[in-house]
């Protein structure tokens, strides 16, 4: 056990890193979207547009902070905070490297026996931010957005939970660090290959959980302005943006940890650079980058689902596929292995 102040300091650093990453993810996303749509994207502010996030941050802070007259004042202010607080806390359980690898420190904030459940629990409470923000704004578009989001998140949480079960059954533990270590399994070092179906179901539900295209109905700008964020401006709006991107990063790290061996690096590089597969953080970040790019790629490629399609897909296909994958994994563990 490390002293409490070390943990506290690590948590602070993690928050700052996540928020910095958020700022530059917006730039990366806009540049990639620009490239995919045959335009430049933001490239005027500083070299390659690198100062754009700073300009955006300043703009968000100094814009007028409007509170709707008929809003439920307390909840209207608290809702974005709920979003960002729970988004940031969820990341703390993700292990970034082997024990003691970060200059003698453990590269995680908390090592919980129930790490998987912790992340699911914290993210499921984060929904309240979206949900209450939309309600407290006292506006029809915002309310529609928050209703959509709650229905969507409840529906896709089932697929998410069920596809995690396969991993838990094989690893035999809920501890994220042990799941990463268990990945040295006789069949494959990466769990996504033997669990391809569960992996697919998990990625799809994860995209729905973070409200990204094609599941971004809660903020469908062509139909309901900006959904739950319609009445928010200035720093409160920025908090929602932060929460969305931090959630994307958490989900990418969660997928990498469960299915892609988390912080473990490629061992075939060991002969040239000894110890490279044990380096903390970088391998996790590299794996996260794959999924972050996937999210952006999907946003540039896919149209948005209609609401009934969303519900039908979640309940009639994704749920059944995830359930089938779970049963199959269970049967294989029980009768074959």
């Amino acid at each position: 056990m490390e002293p409490l102040w070390v943990t506290f300091l690590k948590a602070l650093v993690l928050c700052l890193v996540l928020l910095g990453a958020f700022a530059y993810m917006t730039l990366i996303e806009r540049r990639i979207l620009g490239r995919m749509q045959h335009r430049y994207g933001p490239n005027r502010t500083g070299p390659l547009g690198l100062l754009q996030p700073i300009a955006d941050a300043l703009k968000s802070v100094f814009k007028e902070d409007i509170t709707v007259t008929n809003a439920d004042k307390v909840i209207y202010v608290v809702a974005p905070m709920i979003s960002i607080i729970f988004a940031l806390s969820a990341f703390g359980a993700i292990p970034g490297g082997p024990a003691g690898s970060l200059f003698g420190l453990d590269p995680w904030i908390i090592d919980l026996e129930i790490g998987v459940l912790y992340i699911l629990a914290v993210t499921s409470v984060g929904v309240y931010g979206i949900f209450l923000g939309g309600w407290a704004s006292n506006s029809k578009y915002a309310l529609l957005g928050s209703m959509r989001s709650s229905a969507q998140i409840i529906s896709y949480e089932l697929g998410l939970g069920l596809s995690v079960l396969s991993v838990i059954m094989i690893a035999g533990t809920l501890n994220l660090r042990e799941i990463v270590e268990v990945n040295v399994w006789s069949v494959s070092p990466w769990l996504w290959l033997p669990l391809l179906v569960a992996f697919g179901a998990f990625v799809v539900s994860a995209i729905a959980e973070v409200n990204r295209t094609p599941f971004d109905l809660p903020e469908a700008e062509q139909e309901i302005v900006a959904g739950y964020m319609t009445e928010y401006s200035s720093i409160k709006w920025a908090l929602y943006q932060m929460a969305e991107y931090v959630n994307m990063m958490t989900v990418s790290a969660f997928i990498s940890t469960l299915f892609l061996g988390g912080y473990r690096g490629p061992t075939f590089l060991e002969p040239w650079i000894p110890g490279i597969s044990e380096w903390p953080i970088i391998w996790l970040v590299a794996k996260m980058a794959i999924f972050m790019f996937l999210f952006i790629w999907l946003r540039a490629t896919l149209p948005r689902l209609r609401y009934d399609q969303l519900m039908r897909f979640g309940w009639l296909y994704l749920f059944e596929v995830a359930l089938g994958a779970t049963l199959l994994t269970g049967a294989v563990i029980a009768f074959v292995l």
């Binding site: 919980l112 026996e113 459940l117 499921s124 929904v127 709650s150 409840i154």
Partner: peptide
């Protein structure tokens, strides 16, 4: 009792209460 705590949050706060709120708003 970390497991119970997580289940309490996932089941009650994360699912049942969201449904309650959903119905109230609806």
């Amino acid at each position: 009792a970390h497991f119970l705590a997580a289940i309490q949050v996932i089941v009650y706060a994360g699912a049942i209460m969201v449904l309650f709120l959903f119905v109230i708003m609806l």
